[in-house]
Design a binder for these strands. Sequence first.
DNA 1: CTGAATCCCTGCCGATACTG
DNA 2: CAGTATCGGCAGGGATTCAG
Lengths: 137, 137
Amino acid sequence: MTHRTVGHPAGLPDDPRANVTAPTPECPVEITLSALHGRWTTLVVRELLRGDRSYSELRAALPMLSDKVLSDRLAHLGEAGVVERDRRPGWPPRVRYTLTPTGHRLGPVLQALWDWGAEVSARDRGAESGPETGTVH
Amino acid sequence: MTHRTVGHPAGLPDDPRANVTAPTPECPVEITLSALHGRWTTLVVRELLRGDRSYSELRAALPMLSDKVLSDRLAHLGEAGVVERDRRPGWPPRVRYTLTPTGHRLGPVLQALWDWGAEVSARDRGAESGPETGTVH
DNA sequence: CTGAATCCCTGCCGATACTG
DNA sequence: CAGTATCGGCAGGGATTCAG
């Protein structure tokens, strides 16, 4: 997809991808959603935003996440350029998962997702207290 | 899920939802992803960010989107509090779809998604030209 | 410890047809 | 014009098992 729209200040005002009429892989929004696609994916990224992790540390942090899905997610995030695997030599096998610089930049994206959801849930709870804001990265 | 992590300035520094260990519906990030969930959803929102639309205007703007999926998306976005239906009396039936104030605030979210994807695709094309930035809302 | 392979089941989405 | 009803294919993801 693509998302250029009405009145606005800066930016590339006429990126052709802002006018795609179907969910194509070239649209930046699709690229990002594709990287974050799948259940558990954002939680894995959150965990790695907090620091590098081993496979078993990720399992411990997300106990309900199965091995299959965890390796699927790590492989997918690897292909997306978000996560890097550092295989340390020796025995037993030690592997560290870390975010690439690109992956690190997902922090503001998750932050934006958090902020909107927090605002909605605050509104749904009825109270109109001060605006919420968490910090992901 | 939830996404509070390492160093950061403002915000609710200890929202318990930042530490959920499974994809629960209470996590703000999940709330947002749930609202945007499904193919074509972001494109429908983009179209409505540009202004209110009738059903057939949406179909015309997104020709490859089937009736079934379009009404699914509009219903889902309605339940999510993003879209409102204004049924105008008379014949033939005239219905306008508009974003709620909450829906309007998805603009920055889509912008964040756009920015990350644009940066990635720029990097993938190899050139390191100036940073891209589109404007959604 | 770090995964990959398999199986099965569910839910999404696309196409087609039909209604108020 | 603005949708709903129905069906089928396929991919996502959970549990289990096996391998380096």
